[in-house]
Computed example of a mutant assay.
Amino acid sequence: MSATTSVYHFEQGIPGFEHLHHFVFSDLEQELPIKLMQSVDDQEISLLIVNPFFFYPEYEWELSDSAKQELQIQTEQDIEIWSILTMATEPSGATINLLAPLVLNPNQMTGKQLILHDSTYSSRAPLNRT
């Protein structure tokens, strides 16, 4: 990790990794909007994340006031939304977690994984919709 790498703080960790609170996000050299999310606390934990709107332009939900407050979000420019990607043996089997988006505030370097209760979104939505 370089000295210029920015570390995001996740106050509550993320589901399944509640003990991990610090993550870095690295761009990958590809045409798709994809990043590597790596734990600073445990270097062996890393996840691929993607911009969900690239694959699901109609993706929409309401960010709660409590989440806005926790992440210190003032305007729409304070928000980045990402989703965890799950790879399969065959690339066509890759899925995206629309049920639990990652919300980042790049201005405050804070993050949170939300669970969208009462949602029709899936934690394993197909990446390839054709």
Rank of each mutant, 00 (worst) to 15 (best):
M1F: 11
T4D: 15
T4Y: 13
T4C: 11
T5L: 04
S6L: 10
S6R: 08
S6C: 06
V7F: 02
Y8C: 00
Y8H: 01
E11A: 12
E11L: 08
E11K: 12
Q12S: 08
Q12I: 04
G13H: 14
G13V: 13
G13Q: 15
I14E: 05
E18T: 10
H19C: 11
H21P: 07
H21A: 09
V24K: 13
S26A: 15
L32H: 13
P33G: 02
L36T: 15
L36I: 14
L36Y: 07
M37Q: 08
Q38V: 04
Q38G: 04
S39G: 05
D41M: 00
D41V: 00
D42H: 14
E44L: 10
E44P: 05
I45S: 04
S46V: 03
L47V: 09
L47W: 04
L48N: 01
I49Y: 07
I49L: 10
I49K: 09
F53T: 06
F54Q: 03
F54V: 00
Y56V: 13
P57A: 05
E58D: 15
Y59N: 03
W61F: 15
E62M: 12
E62T: 15
E62Y: 14
L63W: 02
L63E: 09
S64K: 05
D65Y: 12
S66H: 06
A67I: 06
E70F: 07
Q72I: 06
I73G: 08
Q74H: 10
E76H: 12
E76G: 13
Q77P: 06
Q77G: 11
D78M: 11
D78L: 05
I81Q: 12
I81H: 04
W82S: 09
I84N: 08
I84R: 11
L85M: 03
A88F: 05
T89E: 14
T89A: 10
T89Y: 06
E90K: 06
E90T: 07
E90Y: 04
E90L: 05
E90R: 07
E90M: 05
S92Y: 09
G93R: 09
T95R: 13
N97G: 02
L99E: 08
P101Y: 00
L102V: 12
L102T: 03
L102K: 07
L102E: 07
V103E: 01
L104D: 07
N105V: 00
P106S: 00
Q108P: 07
Q108W: 05
M109H: 13
G111L: 00
K112Y: 02
K112T: 02
K112A: 01
Q113R: 10
L116Y: 01
L116G: 03
H117V: 12
D118N: 15
D118S: 11
S119P: 02
S119K: 01
R124G: 09
A125R: 03
A125Y: 01
P126V: 07
P126N: 10
L127C: 15
N128S: 10
R129Y: 05
R129T: 09
